[in-house]
Write a protein that binds this DNA or RNA. Structure first.
Lengths: 202, 202, 202, 202
DNA sequence: TATGAATGAGAGTTCATTCAT
DNA sequence: AATGAATGAACTCTCATTCAT
């Protein structure tokens, strides 16, 4: 009856449910996924889900929120230790390269569907933008660092450059969303990287 | 009785219906739009729509098909007369700049939702890819032209470059999908343009 | 403008429409046949049909009525000239034999569906019964004739026997409705015939 | 949680639903009965029905299947103990006699409508024929038994005779479907019986 | 008269959510 | 807290009938 235990248990259970739901949403999309799909996949009852989440929509939003936060958090940690801005950018591209096309596609499907969903709900648009801003600032800080150390050209517009950085990355993901092979994809990331470096360095 | 009149009338009516449906799909999304929404918006009866289109899905696919074709057709025409490859690329960026953010967002919302939809249906994926290939080849031809005239660097990988071209464009549209202002958007296109030229020219 | 011509034309047109409708009803059943089916088959317009018949149902009833009358009429004619009751019965069986299984099945499908339809509408039930009575009386008259001439046994209950006559005939049609081959069918008619004769003769 | 309870409950519920649906189908016919009719009659929700049956059609087929099986099963049991083939046939006629005209009519309405329905769907035709074959074989076995014991004439074509047996029975039901009174009906069964015995015995 | 585009009530079916157990 | 049978509003699609031309 200790509330602490109950609380921990609840958090864990919520996480398990969200994981199962994510699997389904990724497979079929949010709208096309039924509560029955989720329930079947998780092997629990509908009531159980509704005792943790008020609605299918709430699960979705919660899930997207978790994803966004996870991505930002796991970014900031690693970078503290790298002294070179160029290395930090390179590290980002390595991370892009490490994701398989299959993973990328699933990730994008979820990401895009939520974006469309958010575009129609002002409060979600707001939250989404906060997340997008953080991602922009994250790269901008690296760019600014590079300018200070002289690695990047001094007249670089770091705000614009970080926008370009993400544009290229997102656009590439979009390009390979429906077709293309792993090897081509990896090669295009290389090109993307070299183009970006050509742009930010002298 | 005259087939000409009837035929023309039918084509016109189909177009009107598609226009009305597009309006609704853009507003709420394909899945969230009900036939009642469309019917209300158009001020006609349900039966009328179903005598022109077999299903909601058919309308959607027809619509997407029309959009794709329209885009490709209106591209090829204008370019015949331009002698310089650089001018052709510049012309493309001017076209990007001429589209307002509001238009862009509507366009993207439709575009992305259909892409997600297509991703789950093999035959649509197929058709989508054919369209994407044409867009790629269109830019690649320009790049190859520029290499021949010496405008672009001779070691440019035109296939990769055209992929990058579209990646950047699509990514930028994605970036500005949920936030950003007109002026910033235009400026980012400028940056995008200069980055691309930096990459394709010597 | 002569009313006679118009009248004749109308009758002819009605007959053509009913013929086309019958074809469709036989193929798919009354309920499953749409006005579009009929219109397509006939190559005329919906309005045309509605200027001759008030409703799909009216066509159906009219059609069934015509069929019943036709059958009774074409029976009575031929029999006047036959002196022997046994020959008359034999003639009936020959007529049964002359109908192919395919024809029989189509005929039965229409017949049965209308029967079910009529069973739910008192006025149609009434009309159906009048027709059925005529068919019964027709055979009963033959039976009575046979008793008078001594061809059939004198203690024969002609009313009951005619009921049996039709029961056997209808039941056989039912038996072969969904399966069975032409040759078997013909043989079963033979058996049926011999059984009936065994019953009505001494 | 106990599967036994749940399973039993579900079976019972399915039976209740089928019973209610049968009532409606018998009243108005399969096609004319709407899901709303059934729902109203049963006092449950539409969703409830769809959690037990996938479609209106599935209910219908299930129902017809149950009816067929019930009829065959309840036949075979009782006959094991009867030594005389003639008694077995006589027993059948007693069973026919024991069914009231009202029951018979309802039964026939369902039976015939399903037959028409099945006639247009090859797989159902198939299943229907299997059932019909079993009914034929059931009588044929009795006939063969009677030939062996010498009760029936030795040159009897038992296959043909069983076909006739059912033809007469089905045809009689058809005869009395729309008109006729209980007493007449019973009497005609007597005639039918005597005619059949006249035919199968020497 | 004939046409066939248009109507709209009503069909079968789905599924997020509730609540008695 | 967990279950899953039940709900019923909302969905897509059909089709007999009408009526302006």
């Amino acid at each position: 009856m200790s509330p602490k235990v109950t609380q921990a248990y609840k958090e864990e259970k919520k996480a398990v449910i969200l994981e199962g739901a994510l699997h389904c949403f990724t497979e079929k999309g949010f709208q096309a996924t039924t509560m029955d799909d989720i329930v079947r996949h998780l092997g629990i009852s509908k009531g159980a889900i509704y005792s943790y989440f008020a609605s299918k929509e709430e699960m979705y939003i919660q899930m997207a929120d978790d994803k966004m936060n996870a991505m930002l958090e796991n970014s900031t940690e690693t970078f503290k230790s790298m002294p070179s801005a160029a290395d930090q950018i390179r590290y980002m591209y390595n991370r892009f390269r490490s994701q398989s096309l299959t993973e990328l596609r699933k990730w994008m499907a979820f990401h895009l569907e939520f974006m469309l969903y958010a575009a129609r709900q002002p409060q979600l648009t707001q939250r989404w933008n906060e997340y997008a801003d953080k991602a922009l600032v994250f790269i901008k800080d690296i760019m600014d660092g590079g300018k200070l150390t002289g690695e990047f050209r001094s007249d670089l517009d770091s705000a614009a450059a970080s926008r370009l950085f993400w544009s290229i990355r997102d656009g590439l993901a979009l390009q390979y969303m429906l077709s293309g092979e792993e090897a081509d994809y990896k090669r295009t990331i290389d090109d993307m990287e070299s183009m970006v470096f050509r742009y930010i360095m002298g």
